[in-house]
Structure formats: C-alpha cells, structure tokens
C-alpha cells in the first residue's frame, strides 16, 4: 500500500507565532521554534517532519497564510 508523505513549509518571516497551527495539528508535526524571526516572533516549523501526512489543516487555520503544504505518495 502506498504511503502518503507530507511536508509543511512556513514562511518564517510572515509567521506571527500565534500557535493556532501547532494546536490544530493532530499529528504533532509542528511546534514554535525557539529562535525568533526579524519581527521577534517564534515561528512555526516542522519539529517532527516524518509524521506529516499533508492534511493541510495547519494551512487552513493559518490567519497569515504563511504555510504551503506538499503531499506525495511513495
């Protein structure tokens, strides 16, 4: 059976670190980075990239539209 693998790319400079995407991700993929962007926000990033299935839920709830989502079958 083919496996679905996803990836999340966050525009780090546009992310305001609201944490809504992190909270929405039921696969525990995302977290806020301990580093900050130039605005001083702890931006969202893929902490556990192997768990992402590309469901796009994080992108849907992102108020700043700074998430692009990829999905591939392997």
């Amino acid at each position: 059976m083919a496996k679905i693998i996803g990836a999340v790319v966050v525009d780090e400079e546009k992310c305001k670190g609201c944490n809504v995407c992190v909270n929405e991700c039921i696969h525990d993929v995302l977290a806020l980075h301990k580093e900050v962007n130039s605005y001083g926000y702890h931006y969202s990033y893929m902490k556990n990239s192997d768990k992402c299935i590309g469901c796009a839920n994080c992108g849907l709830v992102c108020p700043d539209t700074c998430i692009t989502i990829y999905r591939a079958k392997v």
Partner: peptide, 28 residues
Amino acid sequence: LIDIIKQENIVYKKSKVLNDVVMHYCPG
C-alpha cells in the same frame, strides 16, 4: 523532504488574489 517539496506536490498554498503584504492583524 527535498523530494516532496516540489511544485507538483503542492496541495495548499496562498491564493493569487491575496497579495504579499503582511497583514496588520494581531497574531491569531
């Protein structure tokens, strides 16, 4: 990851009707 992050694998991205201006709204 580099094999997944390709144009043809995009399933969600910013609409072209939304421009690149950073919104002035508060986080969240």
